[in-house]
């Protein structure tokens, strides 16, 4: 998401680069990564953006310096609050997908067994469900008492303070550094969008965000920009045909291999049982071995 913000800075992005932002869940729980054509990986939003920034300008610009400073502030003040929210969302998601029997039977177990593959899927889902059940019951037992109220208030207070700082920095401007979106806009939007879309829990932080008009307007502006620049997958005829075959006959290669193995083994059994192929065991060798053993025993 943050990279899309950079698109407006007229950087030519190699379309062959692979991004990890394939599913929203992956983006929510892990750090994004970027795979370069030479096979090396860059992990973390800031490192990816610095990679593109270096392509554009060889030296560090003052905008980038400010961006680094605000990112550090964001990590210090907003991220702890977001981590708390992610934990709650994760808890709710686990409860919904693994413990609700209807959801588990109809969607979760099917999806997971398809992803894991044939022999492992017989045991994997059950084991994972047991593990999650155990961890969730442990957390439920621990209760809310463990979470210190003072910590909660402190983290929330700091996050709110950070939102106020952003509001003051934006100060009726369209973007943080003038008329064009920059890396800082992308970073801020990337984090605030998550906060806006976390509808599973009632969050006081979200209410505070709603009371910051400039930030909300900025988020909407960025959203339209991101939607306009969305990467579209190149849908060639070949890939379409492949997808159609995959949909019609799932696990095609596995089935072919299994059929081949089954066919060969039945043929072999048939030929051996009817005597077309005969296995001769050399009796002399066996008798030689037996005499040697007897001699040794003597």
């Amino acid at each position: 998401m943050s990279i899309r913000g950079l698109l407006n800075d007229n950087i030519s992005i190699d379309r062959s680069l692979r991004f990890s932002l394939s599913s929203p869940l992956e983006w929510l729980l892990d750090e994004p990564w970027l795979e370069l054509p030479d096979g090396s990986k860059i992990i973390g939003a800031m490192d990816i953006m610095y990679h593109f920034e270096k392509q554009m300008t060889s030296a560090v610009t003052s905008n980038w310096a400010q961006c680094m400073a605000y990112y550090s502030l964001l990590k210090e003040r907003l991220v702890p609050a977001l981590v708390r929210i992610i934990k709650v969302i994760k808890f709710e998601l686990y409860k919904e997908f693994w413990l609700n029997p209807e959801n588990y039977l109809n969607s979760t177990s099917k999806e997971y067994s398809r992803a894991v593959g044939f022999p492992l899927n017989l045991v994997y889902c059950g084991m994972k469900r047991k593990r999650i059940l155990k961890s969730l019951t442990f957390e439920l037992k621990k209760g809310e008492e463990e979470i210190k109220q003072s910590d909660e208030v402190l983290i929330l207070g700091r996050a709110k303070e950070f939102l106020n700082i952003l509001e003051r920095k934006l100060n009726d401007k369209e973007y943080f550094f003038g008329d064009k979106p920059s890396s800082l806009d992308a970073i801020v939007y990337g984090h605030l969008a998550m906060l806006q879309n976390a509808k599973l829990v009632i969050i006081p932080l979200l209410n505070h965000l709603k009371s910051c008009p400039s930030l909300l307007a900025h988020c909407q502006r960025m959203e339209t920009l991101v939607n306009a620049n969305k990467f579209t997958k190149v849908d060639t005829n070949e890939s379409r045909e492949k997808a159609a075959i995959d949909k019609e006959f799932p696990n095609r290669i596995r089935n072919i291999i299994l059929t081949a193995v089954f066919g060969i083994s039945t043929l072999l059994l048939y030929t051996i049982s009817t005597g077309i192929i005969q296995i001769n065991v050399n009796q002399d060798d066996i008798s030689d071995n037996e005499t040697e053993e007897e001699q040794l025993e003597d």
């Binding site: 400010q66 400073a69 550090s72 003051r168 920095k169």
Partner: peptide
């Protein structure tokens, strides 16, 4: 101005954390 104060806070954070 407010903007300058915000910049100071952000830069302090960069030094204090990173």
């Amino acid at each position: 101005s407010d903007e300058v104060k915000c910049d100071v806070i952000a830069l302090c954070s960069l030094l204090l954390n990173e």
